[in-house]
Amino acid sequence: MSQATTAAPGAAARGRAGRGRKVNTFPLLAPSVAALLVWMIVPLVLTLWYSLQRYNLLYPERRGFVGLQNYVYILSDSTLQTAILNTIVLTGAVLLLSVVFGTLLAVLLNQEFWGQNLARVLVIAPFFVMPPVAALIWKTMMMNPIQGVIAWVTQSLGLGAISWFQNWPMLSIIIIVAWQWIPFATLILLTAMQSLDHEQMEAARMDGAGAISRFRYVVIPHLSRPITIVIMMETIFLLSVFAEILVTTSGGPGHATTTLTYLIYIRALLSFNIGGASAAGVIAIVLANIVAVFLMRIVAGTLERR
């Protein structure tokens, strides 16, 4: 009995001393490491492997290792440059639109007015519409030159109808994607606005700052961090925009709205060229990582400035 009671503190002391050194963490880490392996590394390695193969589903018998030929072919194809440019234009434009309108809407919705809650829900609603549906709504209900709402409005004003997807394909895609992503920016920035110290705005009022100065010197600096978060999050998703293009323009006319993602789709599922698509995918991964490095730098920078 006495032995048991005296042994207990000793055991506890040993346990304390051994913490962090003796505990085997492998079983605890293994599940997540395994999941990462299955979900990330395996597809990545497979993609790399396929990108070095001649592998076209239409000619399954002509398979074999071709080295970097797929890359050489893709990089010398002008479609890739168009696709990269289109991706940059689409991502940049939507980022710009969603940050500008997101900020303005957040500031507006942060004011007290009648029906504020309903307005907030309505503004955020487009975010919950899935991309193919959103694209279909815009294609058939809004931008259709015959029965679309926009055409009806412009025609009532005597301006005639615009064939959006024919004449302004990239602009149309940008409008649709921005419509979906402005709510996300608004949501993030609105919550940030709500954490803005009330007394800071009042202090600025006492200091003689008008509405515009308060926006510029108090609101914008306060929002700078959430804005970088919005840019980072949206970039991740905007680089992989696909459904909107598939449903509306199918990458055309010509290659006017073919982005990197869409190019991979064309290669893989329209030309059945798995090898070429994989090579394009690897290039996309490299480009996305370059963007990610810059983004992380920006985010780290804004964090440091506090």
Partner: peptide, 21 residues
């Protein structure tokens, strides 16, 4: 008269300093 033209200065409970300046 609007607050900034009253010629008064206020010190707030939370100090309300501008964090980025």
């Amino acid at each position: 008269i609007p607050p900034d033209r009253r010629g008064l200065a206020m010190v707030f409970q939370s100090y309300a300093l501008y964090p980025h300046m």
